[in-house]
């Protein structure tokens, strides 16, 4: 009977490997109390920050937790750059994301300069209308609002 199962499944292909993989994944996150979703969020944020300054070769980004033993886990990140980018290129590559950031952080913008709220809103309306014509203005904004 067991011989039959051996042939059916193949010796290395049993569910134990699945168990091992799942456990290793679960334990890495358990041990540093960082659930997979938060790790993904952290990665996104790291890349966001870096791409403010340099252009990232996103296809070859590799950020992963590396378990060594119980007490010493580390985050290994390999983030290749495309090349040293000119400001206009950064701008083109990140335009969409940067606009998103402004939208999400509206509150913060207000807090930074409440008296200018109407002015800013007007300016944003203007930007939306002129987006395609005036991209060079945008990259300066996120650094103002987030600093």
């Amino acid at each position: 009977m067991s011989g039959f199962f051996d042939r059916l499944r193949g010796r290395d292909r049993g569910s134990k490997n699945k168990a091992k993989e799942r456990l290793q994944f679960i334990l890495v996150h358990d041990r540093i109390s960082l659930p997979p979703e938060q790790l993904a969020q952290m990665k996104r944020e790291i890349l966001e920050v870096i791409s403010k300054y340099v252009s990232i070769d996103e296809e070859h980004v590799d950020i992963a937790l590396q378990p060594r033993d119980r007490t010493s886990n580390k985050l290994i990140a390999e983030i290749p750059f495309k090349r040293r980018a000119h400001p206009e290129e950064v701008d083109e590559a990140a335009q969409g994301e940067i606009l998103d950031v402004i939208d999400e952080d509206e509150e913060e913008t207000v807090r930074v300069d409440p008296s200018r709220i109407n002015e800013i809103e007007k300016q944003m309306d203007v930007d939306e209308g002129k987006q395609d014509e005036q991209p060079a203005q945008d990259p300066t904004k996120p650094s103002k609002t987030t600093d």
């Binding site: 499944r9 569910s15 134990k16 456990l23 290793q24």
Partner: peptide
Amino acid sequence: RGEMLSAKDVTDI
């Protein structure tokens, strides 16, 4: 049969 973690698997993990 490869259907259960071995003692070595568990202690390694």
